[in-house]
Design a protein around this nucleic acid. Structure first.
Lengths: 161, 161
DNA sequence: GCAAAATACTTCTATATCTAAGTATTTTCA
DNA sequence: TGAAAATACTTAGATATAGAAGTATTTTGC
């Protein structure tokens, strides 16, 4: 595993360091996303939380009681994805799914105490990853990167409609 | 579909435009990757090519005859992923898998004429997506973004070892 | 107030991806 | 030169994701 990883890492790095032509920004963005996800995933796994579940915990730590659909939208995922993830999270004792006020259509999602308590453990892991990721990056470059990515998202959100 | 998409798009955009705290760079990168992938995916689908297959075609258009393992490394994917994708690509008539020189372990991958011909059709689709994505982005911001992403990949590649 | 439309969840199926483990082949080196 | 190690592919099983279609419920508008 370590051996394989090292070799792949070297290949990926060599690839980017030697050869970054102008039209490969998309590839670069996806690769960065991949290593970021992987770093966080590794850390979350030590607490038996998958990356998918993290996505919903993050939202629920801010607002409980959202419906499944509202969670889907905030997470930017489709409903079947959300449905499956929440079912698993319920089985893992991270959340509860409740129907309120006699409305039998909407299902509201609440954290269990266990889910709530994980916040304190998990948030620092994400901060660690972020700190490692941007170490040595110029502050102004970081601002430019945010501007660029936001613009890309805006431009393509229109394209995807 | 369009309606759903619009609503989601609006939610995603509102989310980023109103609220981009300092520690959410990773989320921003992943979201950008997602919209980029989706835009390309939509275009590729019109030619019955999946995004996964595109990843390998890109490499093969530059170098044919690589082994499955070499392709895995260049694509940054694990071998079972590569294996499955290449089997499907063979079934779709995009590639051929050949054993050479009596070596019965290594399998070398070659494009079919069909696979080779797709280059001319598909490359412009990726260029279109790129053009739309970076429209209105300052050139210097783009350079800063490349620097930043490359640094992030380098930093985390070490972390992931 | 009821039929039609919209909404929210669920199910089913498919793709993309990974890890772990298995098999076959080649290489190494004592 | 032949056993051990390394390599390359394959299989099996798991997770994450989406699209399409189905079901149940609520809302809308006449």
């Amino acid at each position: 595993m370590t051996r394989t990883n090292n070799r792949e890492t070297r290949t990926v790095l060599r690839h980017w360091q030697e050869d970054v032509p102008d039209d490969r920004l998309a590839h670069l963005i996806r690769d960065a996303g991949r290593v970021l996800t992987k770093s966080l995933q590794t850390r979350l796994a030590e607490h038996s939380v998958s990356f998918g579940h993290w996505s919903f915990l993050r939202i629920l730590w801010v607002t409980e009681g959202l419906t499944q659909r509202e969670l889907s939208e905030q997470a930017g995922l489709m409903e079947p994805t959300t449905f499956t993830a929440l079912k698993a999270m319920e089985a893992n004792g991270l959340i509860e799914r409740r129907q309120l006020n006699g409305n039998r259509k909407n299902i509201h999602i609440y954290l269990t105490q266990k889910g709530r308590d994980l916040k304190e453990t998990l948030i620092p892991l994400a901060e660690d990853v972020n700190d490692i990721a941007v170490k040595g990056v110029d502050c102004e470059d970081l601002r430019a990167t945010r501007r660029t990515l936001l613009k890309i998202i805006t431009n393509l959100a229109q394209d995807n409609e």
